[in-house]
Every structure is written in C-alpha cells, then in structure tokens.
Amino acid sequence: MSSKRKTIFNLVFLVVVFVLTIHFVFRGEDIGDILQAVRDADWRYLLLGLVCVILFILGESTIIFYMMRTLGAKVKMGHCALYSFVGFFFSCITPSASGGQPMQIYFMKKDKMPVPVTTLVLMIVTITYKAVLVLIGVVAAIFGSGFLRGYLGDYMWVFYLGLGLNIFCVTLMLTLVFAPGLAKWLMVKGLKLLEHVKFLKKKESRLKKLEESMDQYHATAAFWAGHKRIILNVFLITLVQRCILFTITYWVYRSLGLHSVGFFAITLLQSMISVSVDMLPLPGGMGISETLYIRMFEPVFGDLLLPSMLLSRGLSYYGQMLISAIMTCVAYFVIRDDTQTEKKEKSVC
C-alpha cells in the first residue's frame, strides 16, 4: 500500500471509528443537558488540564533534546518540540500509534539529524514509554487488584489483556536490545517460515531490510550498557510525563464541582484505561477507551458521567490531536530540507 493510500485509509478509519463511538455512547441521551453541563464547568480547571496535555507532549521533547545532546547531535529545543508534536499527531490518527515515529524520523532527516542517532533515541523513547506503563500496570495488578475489580468488574479481562500485550512488547524490545543475536535469528527464521507457508512472497530485499533493522539494536545495547544513569533519568522523566496526562480526568472532576473522590484514585483509574488500550489496534484506543471510561467512572461522576467523558477525552485525546495537528503544520514550514531548497533556487537561476 502506497504512503498516500495508507494515509487516506487511516483518516477514513479514524472518522468511521469516531462516528460509531459517538453514536453508541450518546445514543438516547439528551445532548442539550450534556452540553449545558460542559458549558457550566469551571474553565480554570479545564485550562489546567490543557496545560497538562502540552506538558505531556513537551516531556517527550525534553527527552529527545537531552539524549540528542548526550549523543553529540546539535539540535534546537524548539525543533525537538516540533518532532514531538508531529509524533503525537500521527500516533493519534493511526492504529496502535504506528505512524508517529516514522514521521518523526522523516522530519529529523529534513533537519539533517544523523539517522543512526535518531533511530537510537526514538527506540529508547519507545522502550521507556512502554516500560513505564508496564510498571504502573504491574504495581496496580499486585497491590490494587481488589480496588480495580470494584470499578472494572467484568472488564478486568481487558485490563489483563492490555497489560499482557504491553509486557510482551517490552520483553520483545528488551530481547532485541540485550540479545540481538538471538532476536535476529528468531526474526529471520520467522520471516522464512512465513515465506515457506506462502503467507508472504519470498523477497531478498525484505530479508536484507529486516537484517539491517535488527543491526540497529546493537547500537542501542551499547548505549544502554554505557549510559545507565541517562536511561534512568529518561525513565523518570517518562514516568512524570505519563502521570501528568493521567491527572487530566481529576481536573475535569474538579471543574464539574465534585470533590469527594481523591486525586490519587482518579489518576490511577485513568492510568488503568491507558494500560488496557495502549496496544489495541485502534487510533487513540477510540471506542474501547470510552467503554472503559463509562464502566470505571460511573460511580465517580454519577449523573455527570457523559459530560466528564466529553471533557476528559476532549482534552487528553482530541485536544492533543488538534494541538499537535496545528504544530505539525508549523513543522512543515519551520523544518525545511535546505538541500532541496538550494536545488530549486539553482534551477530557477
């Protein structure tokens, strides 16, 4: 599938899922009452929630800037911010957030960032991003399973599925990093098996591309071994970054004039939704996120459940997507390939 067709498919898929989600969530509800409750919300708390969205995105920018400078790459903090906005926008509109990093690499290449450096940085960002979610999910499963069961009920299996998929993903990535020889052997054997059973057509170029991509993990392993303190710092920044985003639902809770449920409980519940849906093949976990939100937060928000969901998802997902979309447009104008520009100027002359 060509890049243009893939983009069109992702956008159509996003719109279809969005329309179906809106239909099933708000079917039979009084939209006027919901919108009135939204209008009555305290805008100061909502503004705080919006600030959390921006801080969440800039948290990744800080990590990229920190690691780029550690690796000796000359990069501006403003451009790192644009890389993050681009990544989050395309992650929001593609299933399993698969489109974010390829587009970040595209803009980094335009910015003349060395490809081995950008690949290494983004790989570590991905591993720590997933690892933080795994840590939160495992701790919650061990020490708060009773608490979660009280809110999730019959949907506990979705939480365990999401946690299991994240654990598998992190384990696979760490295997690629720390046992690259074994990982390369397994991936090559797996590819040959798929070709043998005719699931994939045999292509030498595909095998070569796979082997080259696997070799990138050697550099990650070497960096990890020699920069443990930096990896720890990145992990801690990522932990704070993710927790900031999870607090948005609490600020929505306060904006609606509610205060009986504590900050920690609401933030934990929201983090469990992220653990559950992060690896599912839906853009932004759309559909299942709303379903889990309704199930988990009904005892918390009561009659204000749907207005709260509209505000919470509006800020944390749709707001994030809109802000990132605007900044992605800015990136197209700010980050330019000077080589292409020079060629065009010479051809005009």
Rank of each mutant, 00 (worst) to 15 (best):
R5A: 09
I8K: 08
I8R: 03
I8M: 04
V16W: 01
V16S: 06
V17F: 03
F18Y: 12
H23I: 06
F24G: 05
E29D: 11
A37R: 15
R39N: 10
D40S: 15
L47V: 15
L48W: 12
G49D: 03
V53G: 08
F56I: 11
F56S: 09
I57M: 12
G59W: 05
I63P: 13
I64K: 06
I64A: 07
M68E: 01
G72N: 01
H79L: 01
C80I: 04
G87W: 02
F88S: 06
F88L: 13
F88H: 11
F89K: 02
F89H: 02
C92P: 05
T94W: 00
S96L: 12
P102Q: 08
P102T: 10
Y106C: 07
F107M: 07
M108N: 10
K112Q: 12
P114R: 02
P114T: 04
P116R: 07
T119L: 08
V121Y: 05
L122I: 05
L122T: 12
I124F: 03
T126K: 10
Y129I: 01
K130H: 11
V134K: 06
V134H: 05
V134L: 09
L135R: 03
S145Q: 10
S145Y: 07
G146E: 06
G146V: 03
F147D: 02
R149P: 00
D154E: 14
Y155N: 14
M156C: 01
W157F: 04
Y160C: 04
N166K: 06
N166M: 05
I167Q: 02
F168N: 01
T171W: 00
T175M: 12
L176C: 15
V177Y: 00
F178V: 10
K184P: 00
L186D: 06
L193V: 15
H196G: 13
K201E: 14
K201P: 10
E204C: 08
S205M: 10
Y217T: 11
T220P: 11
A221K: 13
A225P: 05
H227G: 14
H227F: 09
L232Q: 03
N233W: 02
F235E: 02
L236D: 02
L239T: 12
Q241A: 08
I244K: 04
F246G: 03
W251F: 15
Y253E: 03
S255I: 04
L258D: 02
S260T: 11
V261Y: 14
G262H: 06
G262P: 09
L269R: 12
L269K: 12
I273A: 00
S276Q: 04
V277H: 01
M279K: 02
P283Y: 00
G285K: 08
I288M: 14
I288Q: 13
L292C: 05
L304C: 13
L305F: 04
L305H: 04
S312N: 07
R313A: 01
M321H: 01
L322R: 00
S324D: 08
I326R: 00
I326S: 07
T328V: 10
A331C: 03
A331L: 00
Y332T: 13
F333D: 10
D337E: 09
Q340G: 15
K344S: 15
K344G: 08
